[in-house]
């Protein structure tokens, strides 16, 4: 009986937190169908914002910049980070600790300080633009990759790699066939993390982007004073639905397959 009450309270509490996390998202989804431009008055159902969204070249430009940026920076960060993590893990204890301390700097430092420091450095030798934002994103993404990959390297059984080498595999073949598969889950988590962080970043992009380049975040920020265009709600709703379906597929399709196998 006590257990039942406790279970109920646990469920209830999880529900409250979920409500807190999803209320603003629900508000945004409703607003994307609101025909009144006013943000509090319901003016009836409309799909107009979805229509104008796809004809707005400004929004589409920002969307493609954001996606290209997130994808490219996550890929480069994953490669440099994974290879770097393997190298760091083979270092002597003292050097290992020093490098990891430096790895933590972009994570510990405030975004605004990281962004400003990079901007002050970039303006000395290159124009601010897509290139500078890309470098900045790679810089703050690498620590997340290392953080995800490092525990997998520690769990990895080195003897298998050594055995492969002893049996005549060259180092690249052994790396691809033995090391990479063992690290794959960490690498994927690192990539996913880096991609998400890049998509959601504002402060560092804001300081390093220069004129002319806009991601979704910086574009929305520039609209705050003038008033947000309802197209942005429509776009967010589409992204939300898209990610929701992907996560659903990733999480439940493998399980369904497993269930079928069991039968």
């Amino acid at each position: 009986m006590v257990d039942k009450i406790k279970n109920f309270l646990s469920r209830f509490y999880i529900g409250i937190i979920l409500f807190f996390l999803y209320v603003p998202i629900f508000v945004m989804i409703v607003l994307s169908f609101n025909s009144s431009r006013s943000r509090v008055i319901w003016g009836g159902f409309t799909l107009d914002w979805y229509r104008t969204l796809f004809s707005s070249s400004e929004v589409m430009q920002a969307l493609s910049t954001t996606m290209i940026l997130a994808f490219t920076s996550a890929i480069i960060a994953t490669v440099i980070g994974t290879v770097g993590a393997i190298g760091i893990s083979a270092m002597r204890e003292r050097n290992y600790k020093i490098v990891l301390a430096f790895t933590n700097i972009p994570m510990l430092n405030a975004d605004i300080v990281t962004g400003i420091a990079l901007m002050l450095w970039f303006v000395r030798f290159m124009p601010l633009g897509f290139g500078s934002v890309l470098i900045a994103h790679i810089t703050f993404n690498i620590p997340y990759v290392i953080l995800c990959v490092m525990p997998k390297i520690k769990q990895m059984n080195l003897s298998i790699y050594e055995a492969a080498r002893d049996l005549g595999a060259n180092s690249i073949y052994a790396f691809v066939k033995i090391t990479l598969p063992q690290l794959m889950s960490g690498i994927m988590a690192g990539f996913f993390m880096a991609f998400t962080m890049s998509m959601d970043d504002f402060a560092i992009t804001y300081f390093t982007k220069g004129a002319g380049v806009n991601t979704l975040s910086t574009m929305i920020y520039s609209q705050i004073r003038k008033g947000i265009k309802p197209e942005m709600y429509a776009l967010s709703t589409i992204i939300f639905a898209f990610v929701f379906l992907i996560l659903l597929a990733v999480n439940y399709v493998p399980k369904m397959k497993n269930a079928r196998k069991c039968k």
């Binding site: 975040s217 929305i220 705050i224």
Partner: peptide
Amino acid sequence: WMNFILRLLA
């Protein structure tokens, strides 16, 4: 995955 500035605006 929903832009955090938009969530704040909500």
